[in-house]
């Protein structure tokens, strides 16, 4: 069944792969982006070239008014959002002693406040539909912790507690709320770490390599499907066996 999906931070990396996956599963996809219009348009073009339907929508997902406007726009053009993928995320890594309040606030706002704002905005439509999927992208950092990522790890752990609470609130209405926690995935975000770190990580991964964005998208595709109707409040770790 074709549904309307909204992927935050859908223009690059894992978000792009998720948008492409949901489109290939037959869904109509809204791709939210913060600044990179060209990248978002490219995802839309890729989807339409393959016979799908998609749109790009700009919004700072940590901003209340911007999120409201984004949902209005998407619902007017595509219809009620029944699959929400909270994927938008940033890093501002530093040791805690050097981490200023701005680095803390920016990460919490973009990574965690956005999940609250978007989930809340999507919930009315899902309640009306008596069907919904809220899937948020966390990180292995939020489960195991990671030096230099106190802010990022806090935001990603926050997503897990949030999702469990909402899963209990709205489970009776056929709305499931789950989390996918990627390990080290080959994206622009992990590329910043350099090849030495990547090689070191690959040695610690049971599967022996970094993950691909499509491998996270496959987990999201499953959780968004009718097959996953009895799975809620869960965190699916997709890390190649890094944190065992």
């Amino acid at each position: 069944m074709s549904r309307v999906a909204l992927v935050t931070g859908g223009s690059r990396g894992i978000g792009r792969a998720i948008a492409l996956r949901l489109a290939s599963d037959g869904h109509v996809v809204a791709i939210n982006y913060a600044a990179n219009r060209a990248a978002a348009d490219d995802v839309v073009e890729t989807i339409t070239a393959n016979g799908g339907t998609a749109m790009a929508v700009q919004a700072d997902v940590g901003d209340t008014d911007a999120v409201g406007a984004m949902f209005e726009d998407v619902e007017e053009r595509l219809g009620r959002v029944e699959i929400l993928v909270n994927n938008a995320g940033i890093t501002r890594d530093d040791l805690l002693l050097r981490m200023g309040p701005d680095a803390w606030d920016q990460v919490i706002e973009t990574n965690l406040r956005s999940v609250y704002l978007c989930s809340r905005a999507a919930m009315r439509g899902m309640l009306r539909a008596r069907w919904g999927r809220i899937i948020s992208v966390s990180s292995i950092s939020g489960i195991s912790g990671n030096p230099g990522q106190a802010n990022y790890a806090a935001s990603k752990a926050g997503i897990i507690g949030f999702s469990k609470s909402i899963a209990r609130e709205i489970g009776s209405r056929n709305i499931t709320v789950n989390v996918v926690a990627p390990g080290f995935i080959e994206t622009d975000m992990t590329e910043e770490l350099g090849t030495e770190v990547a090689e070191e990580v690959a040695r610690r991964v049971a599967v022996g390599r970094l993950g691909r964005p499509e491998e996270i998208a496959a987990a999201v595709g499953y959780l968004a499907s009718d097959d996953a109707a009895y799975v809620t409040g869960q965190t699916l770790v997709v890390d190649g066996g890094l944190a065992l």
Binding site: R124, L127, R128, E169, I170, S172, R173
Partner: peptide, 13 residues
């Protein structure tokens, strides 16, 4: 309490 919220949404519609 969620039912009350849904009822109010139905009233709006």
């Amino acid at each position: 309490s969620l039912g009350v919220v849904e009822l109010l949404m139905a009233l709006e519609d």
